[in-house]
């Protein structure tokens, strides 16, 4: 059987909030190393890769590899029933056709269980090569969410230009044009607030704002976000989930005609 128990149940709540608007359904692939999920949005312009390691759970048991196809809106509805401080347990019998979520309140006085039917999804899996990126930008995740929200009012595309001076986010549209420049933080006293840029060579790419705004739904999972860019390959937007894993969003660029 499969059983994964997490005292920090709010992590699962936030993970579903971070993917349910971009993906309608996905398969949770579970083995003894943990839970992986990889899925593209319907337009195949973006891809989500979630990893929750077994050692990040308070109890993790996976007797046989199991792939559970789920409707993410349904899972989000179930997880909305969990309190922020609840312990969340996900469990399923081997080759079961349902999964059960159990929520325990901190004082154990309230225990809820929700059973949901699984779906047969034969979603294609993509091979994502390990890549050395020309530019990586670590910055406060709230800052990135703010930039995406502000610039998407000016146009449906955003240009991200990374040079040794810093990173510039731009958008143009009917009402005009907007540029936001972030310089590398000089004195990194509080890592979480710093903008740290590693640049092997400058990169400028154009992306659709709407996907970036879907990605920033993961902001509550991590105080920092890491953007990785190379010429003419998908942008990677990564949110580390403390002590258990990460959620990575890949976004295909808009290629000049």
């Amino acid at each position: 059987m499969f059983e994964a128990r997490l005292l920090r149940g709010s992590i699962l709540k936030k993970v579903l909030e971070a993917i349910k608007d971009l993906l309608t359904q996905a398969t949770f692939d579970c083995d003894d190393s943990g839970i992986q999920l990889q899925a593209m949005d319907n337009s195949h312009v973006s891809l989500v890769s979630l990893q929750l390691r077994a050692d990040g759970f308070d109890k993790y048991r996976c007797d046989r590899n199991i792939s559970m196809g789920m409707n993410l809106n349904s899972v989000a509805k179930i997880l909305k029933c969990a309190g922020d401080k609840d312990t969340v347990t996900m469990k399923a019998q081997d080759n079961a056709d349902t999964v059960t979520f159990v929520f325990e309140s901190p004082n154990q006085e309230k225990v809820s269980d929700y059973e949901m039917k699984l779906m047969n999804l034969d979603l294609e899996h993509l091979g994502i090569p390990e890549t050395e990126y020309s530019c990586t930008i670590r910055m406060p995740s709230a800052e990135f969410a703010r930039i995406c929200r502000d610039l998407s009012q000016f146009g449906d595309s955003m240009v991200i230009a990374c040079t040794k001076e810093g990173v510039k986010f731009s958008a143009t549209g009917e009402i005009g044009s907007a540029n936001i420049k972030l310089a590398q933080t000089a004195s990194v006293d509080k890592e979480e607030e710093a903008v740290i840029i590693e640049m092997d060579e400058p990169v400028t790419l154009t992306f659709a704002c709407q996907y970036l705004n879907y990605f920033t739904k993961a902001t509550s999972l991590s105080p920092q976000v890491q953007l990785s860019m190379s010429a003419d390959v998908p942008l990677v937007v990564e949110y580390r989930i403390q002590d258990i894993g990460h959620i990575r969003y890949y976004l295909a660029p808009k290629i000049e005609d």
Binding site: S43, V45, L126, G127, T206, I255, E256
Partner: peptide
């Protein structure tokens, strides 16, 4: 501005 690429332009199905 620019043609939107998709994941299939970059990653292979496995």
């Amino acid at each position: 501005k620019g043609k939107q690429a998709t994941m299939m332009n970059f990653f292979k199905k496995i």
